[in-house]
């Protein structure tokens, strides 16, 4: 019974705190998620997980129905009201239906996707679920037709694609909302903003998340540099890429290790630390390695989670962690350590360790960071 499964899912989202308002709760109880996922069994449609709907030729997910917990959190962050005019970037169909419920018959919802197969599917499924008043548009979201923006601006824009930038800042009305998974040095945080005096000011807790990548004009450049002969790649996705050829000999010798005395539990997230280091340290990059290569990197980062690193001339330092005990709950306790490679590796590692300790003493227990976004020409 789809409605029983749906109500059970909503009960779970309420208990976990992802739903905070009666409006979002009622909406999630009403909109039939399984209608937007006809490819999977009804039970799968009501699991708290993503449902992939489209893949690239090399097997990566290029479109999906997002996880319910994350959609609930983003809808809460969007603070939608009846009558709001809303733009959604990335069209699964389900989220557009949720938005349409929240803004009611006096609201307006436009959902945009670059992939015509995705918009065809969304159009079909929205009609099947009774939401054919949602406008579905095939377009590159970086170059939208002018009529997407109503007079006076959008009340809200909700982005459901990982995005490196926020070109929609000028389309949002003063006092309006923008919710987006924003990439900073490959770290992706869903951020809820209000527009004030032309700038977007974050005013919701940041949520670490991941969506399918932006395609088209907004596709980001990872600015990858490969250290010759090593199978080590450095991504300078934000900031200026640095030369890396001179780093090759640094990995001939074992690194020096600088301990931080800063620890983290086995299942405790430390995303705030990595975002802090990305902003604080010039020459910051993300380090990945060929898994089968003899790259000389100690405790190499896992394939889909490049390590945090900095380049200092012929030397490099990288954030790692070592298990130092079982922790209070038996899930492990780890100490952040910095590995320094090359002639000035110890110095670079000491510099990074000092920033880890600064974060520990000043920011770790503080409220989450506040993000302000201004148009470039402001």
């Amino acid at each position: 019974d789809p409605s029983a499964l749906r109500n059970r899912l909503v009960d779970q989202l309420l208990a976990a705190g992802h739903i905070r308002t009666a409006a979002v709760e009622a909406t999630l109880r009403r909109v039939p998620r399984h209608v937007f996922a006809p490819e999977v069994p009804v039970r799968t449609a009501y699991a708290d997980d993503i449902i992939p709907t489209r893949h690239t030729p090399d097997g990566r997910i290029s479109s999906s129905v997002s996880a319910p917990w994350l959609l609930a959190a983003m809808l809460e962050a969007a603070r939608l009201r009846p009558g709001h005019r809303v733009l959604e970037i990335g069209s699964g169909g389900y989220n557009a239906a949720l938005i349409a419920e929240l803004v009611g018959p006096t609201g307006q919802v436009t959902t945009v996707d670059i992939d015509p197969d995705v918009t065809d599917r969304a159009t079909r499924l929205l009609a099947a679920a009774g939401y054919d008043h949602v406008r579905v548009l095939t377009a590159d979201a970086e170059h939208l037709p002018a009529d997407v923006v109503p007079e006076g601006g959008l009340d809200a824009a909700i982005v459901t694609v990982d995005t490196w930038d926020l070109p929609w800042i000028t389309m949002v009305a003063e006092g309006g909302r923008l919710v987006a998974p924003l990439r900073l040095h490959q770290y992706v945080w869903s951020i809820g903003f209000t527009k004030r005096d032309g700038a977007l000011i974050s005013d919701e807790p940041l949520t670490v998340c991941g969506f399918v990548p932006m395609q088209g004009a907004g596709a980001w450049d990872p600015n990858l540099r490969t250290i010759p002969g090593r199978g080590i790649r450095l991504a300078f996705e934000d900031g200026t890429p640095m030369p890396v050829d001179q780093l090759a000999p640094a990995f001939d010798k074992a690194p020096s290790t600088v301990r931080t005395n800063v620890t983290v539990g086995g299942e405790e997230p430390f995303d705030s630390l990595t975002l802090y280091l990305a902003g604080a340290l010039p020459g910051f990059c993300r380090l990945s390695v060929d898994q089968d290569g003899h790259n000389g990197v100690i405790s190499p980062p896992p394939p889909h989670w490049p390590g945090a690193a900095i380049v200092r001339g012929t030397s490099l330092a990288r954030l790692a962690h070592e298990r130092i005990g079982d922790g209070d709950h038996g899930k492990g306790e780890h100490e952040f350590v910095i590995h320094g490679y090359g002639p000035a590796g110890h110095l670079a590692a000491t510099e990074m360790a000092e920033h880890v300790q600064h974060w520990q003493h000043n920011h770790r227990a503080a409220p989450c960071p506040r993000i302000t976004v201004q148009p470039k020409d402001a």
């Binding site: 490196w164 930038d165 926020l166 070109p167 800042i169 924003l182 900073l184 934000d238 900031g239 975002l275 802090y276 990305a278 902003g279 604080a280 003493h361 000043n362 920011h363 770790r364 227990a365 503080a366 409220p367 989450c368 960071p369 506040r370 993000i371 302000t372 976004v373 201004q374 148009p375 470039k376 402001a378």
Partner: peptide
């Protein structure tokens, strides 16, 4: 205060202190 420069925007991050 950390600043990231994007194509269309400038992103500033304020880190509150404990």
């Amino acid at each position: 205060l950390h600043v990231f420069h994007k194509k269309y925007t400038r992103i500033k991050i304020d880190w509150p202190v404990v």
